[in-house]
Simulated assay, not measured.
Amino acid sequence: MPTSPPPVHAGRSWARAFQDIREGLAARELWGHLGWQDIKQRYRRSVIGPLWITLSMAVTSAGLGLLYSQLFGSPIGTFLPYVTVGFIVWAFILGCLTEGSDAFISNEGLIKHLPAPLTVYALRTVWRLTLMLVHNLLVYLAVLIIFFGYLSQPYKLQETANAIVQPGLSWTALLAVPAFVLIAANGAWVTLLFGIISTRYRDIPQVIAALTQLVFFMTPIMWSTDILNQRFGEGDHSWAILIAELNPVYHFIQILRAPLLGLQQSWHHWVVVGGVTLVGWALALVAMRNYRARISYWV
């Protein structure tokens, strides 16, 4: 006689996973308040408060931008804004990877005593990082005002014959809005997925912290792809450009950096980011379906 399928565990269902995400998005007052509190608590009793975020980014970008512009022989007026925006976007991505992996561990007390969707803690992390990015955008605005004359017309990041001519700032700067929304959506699934894995395996945050240092130097943040073309050319050494193209972080940074600096728009960056978004959310949903109910025990 036919046998009935095995029962599905009460905590393992797609309906509960999607319900958690819906309820988490709906609880915007909760994760919004928690994110604000994180910023306030971090700079409590500080004289200038959250402006330390802006000051730190300004000093780092100015120092490294001036240094590497001289090392690579790049014009300061265009290379310094390039490095600055790269650092701003990288800081957000880095936060999603490192702080996201600790999202559930650091919220152990709330998870055990507050009946809230797990998505709330992921959104709390992304919202906190968004607030920090807004503070860092003050550095971008200052750089934009200072170097607007260089960025408002066609320019090169490298003064070489084979360097790409960038079109300069235009209405395409509006693409920065959907670009950030897409990056933030990826930050949410990164926080959910890595947060769940890290809660079960506590070595993962250390692994992520170590790997991000390598990713930083392999990503065109303090250097541009024009340098690879200058060094290797486009002939038999065209494989060198794969150093950047096979790095998904490069595409995430470029979809936001390009409109903010008037760089040449390349839609393949959007295609790569869109593909990563779909795959990442699929993995995050699988993790939410299978392990969401176990988080409170693992923490």
Rank of each mutant, 00 (worst) to 15 (best):
V85T: 02
I93C: 00
S69E: 13
G77T: 00
A103D: 05
Y121K: 05
G65R: 00
L67S: 09
L123N: 01
A103N: 06
I111E: 03
A91F: 10
Y82E: 01
S106R: 14
E99D: 14
P117A: 06
P115L: 07
R128S: 12
S69R: 15
I88W: 04
T84R: 05
E99Y: 13
G95V: 05
L64T: 08
G109C: 13
C96F: 12
I88T: 03
S106Q: 12
T78C: 09
T130K: 02
P75T: 08
Y68R: 12
G95N: 05
L64P: 01
T78W: 08
L64I: 06
E108P: 06
V120D: 01
A122D: 10
I105P: 10
L110P: 09
I105C: 11
G65I: 02
W90S: 02
G100V: 13
L129F: 01
L64E: 05
T84C: 02
V126H: 00
V83L: 10
L66W: 11
W127S: 14
W90G: 03
T84Y: 01
F72M: 07
L67I: 13
L67G: 04
F79K: 09
G95K: 01
I88M: 05
L97W: 07
G77F: 00
Y68C: 13
E99I: 11
A122P: 10
K112V: 11
P75R: 08
L64V: 04
L110E: 14
A122N: 10
L67R: 03
G77P: 00
A116S: 12
T84N: 01
I111D: 03
Y121A: 03
V120R: 00
L129K: 04
T125S: 11
T125E: 08
L129T: 02
V83R: 10
V120M: 00
G100F: 11
P81Q: 03
L131H: 10
R128I: 08
L71R: 07
L71D: 04
G100D: 12
G65L: 01
A116D: 06
R128C: 08
G95Q: 01
D102T: 15
L97G: 02
E108A: 12
F79P: 04
L118A: 05
L66M: 12
T125M: 14
W90I: 00
R124P: 02
P75W: 09
I111G: 06
Y68K: 09
T98N: 09
G86F: 06
S74A: 15
